[in-house]
């Protein structure tokens, strides 16, 4: 009886870790492959039949990373991506926060339906929109400029982030805000001093998500930036490191890792904050 119990428990644990491990492997394998390829020498990389593609058969080299930084505009691409990302994040916060707040608080039931409508806008794919958008871009005279992207990206980050923040604002008890209003603040004052501090996990999520959305956007960037000095990283590396049918695989992988690493770290740092209920202890419980 006791033995059965323990055997069952051990079996359960083994199974759990086996399945989780399988998924972790599944998720990590591409990254592992990227790192390996980034440091492979050409001779090693170009002979996959005889060489094991998962390990270094010849000694690793940093040649391709040096190439990435010295022979391409990689740093410019990164800088462009950061400028675009930060600007879009700021614009998104500026619009999505008040929009989400009013949807959550002021329109009652209608708010939810409007929220869904706004979210639907996000679902219209850029592949459909980039042709009409090119008219808009040329109308405002931003052809071949990263600022065209700064103008266009909020069209999908704002709806998405409004929806996201809407959920966060709704989870903050109304009592707390009304208490602030009774305690001597205007509605705006209550929002600023009480609601926003409690919505910090939401704001962080919005920052990370909208930054990510701008970072991996491809179609608008491809359509509206042509010179290297204006390209963000998603388009930059793929246009400069794919020449005709020649792929600079090692440099491509290196460029992807260099961008992905800091984001992965930031993501993990904040992940717990996203989930942590800051509102805990606010009301009864």
């Amino acid at each position: 009886m006791n033995r059965h119990y323990w055997l069952g428990k051990i079996f359960k644990g083994v199974m759990t870790y086996f399945i989780v491990g399988l998924f972790a492997l599944f998720a990590a394998l591409p990254f592992y492959q990227m790192v390996i390829i980034a440091f492979k020498s050409n001779a090693d990389f170009n002979n996959p039949r005889e060489n094991n593609p998962f390990i270094f058969n010849d000694p690793p080299t940093t040649d391709h990373i040096v190439y990435l930084f010295e022979q391409t505009e990689y740093l410019t691409f990164i800088l462009n991506s950061v400028i675009i990302g930060v600007s879009v994040v700021l614009i998104t916060l500026l619009f999505a926060t008040p929009a989400a707040y009013s949807l959550a608080r002021l329109t009652g039931r209608l708010g939810e339906r409007l929220g869904i409508l706004i979210f639907l806008v996000y679902l219209i794919p850029p592949t459909l929109l980039f042709i009409p958008m090119s008219q808009v871009v040329s109308f405002v005279g931003l052809q071949n400029s990263k600022w065209a992207l700064v103008m266009l990206y909020p069209t999908f980050t704002i709806p998405f982030c409004t929806w996201l923040m809407f959920g966060f604002f709704r989870s903050i008890p109304r009592d707390i805000e009304e208490q602030a209003m009774v305690d001597g603040y205007s509605r705006f004052g209550a929002m600023w001093r009480v609601v926003l501090p409690l919505a910090v996990p939401g704001v962080l999520t919005v920052v990370v998500f909208s930054f990510m959305l701008t970072l991996h956007e491809y179609i608008y960037a491809l359509a509206f930036t042509t010179s290297s000095s204006e390209k963000p990283i998603s388009v930059g590396v793929t246009t400069e490191l794919v020449r005709g049918d020649v792929f600079f695989w090692q440099s491509l992988m290196a460029s992807a890792i260099i961008v992905a690493l800091p984001i992965a770290i930031v993501y993990n740092l904040f992940l717990n904050r996203f989930v942590a209920g800051l509102t805990m202890g606010a009301v009864k419980g």
């Binding site: 008890p173 009592d175 707390i176 009774v182 305690d183 001597g184 606010a282 009301v283």
Partner: peptide
């Protein structure tokens, strides 16, 4: 508006500000 009425209210949920200390809560008004 409520702030112009010089009153105070205790909600059923107490509605304490969770991001502030007890001192911050009491000092808020």
């Amino acid at each position: 508006p409520p702030r112009a009425r010089n009153l105070s209210m205790v909600f059923q949920s107490y509605a304490l500000y969770p991001h502030m200390s007890v001192f911050g809560n009491i000092a808020f008004p």
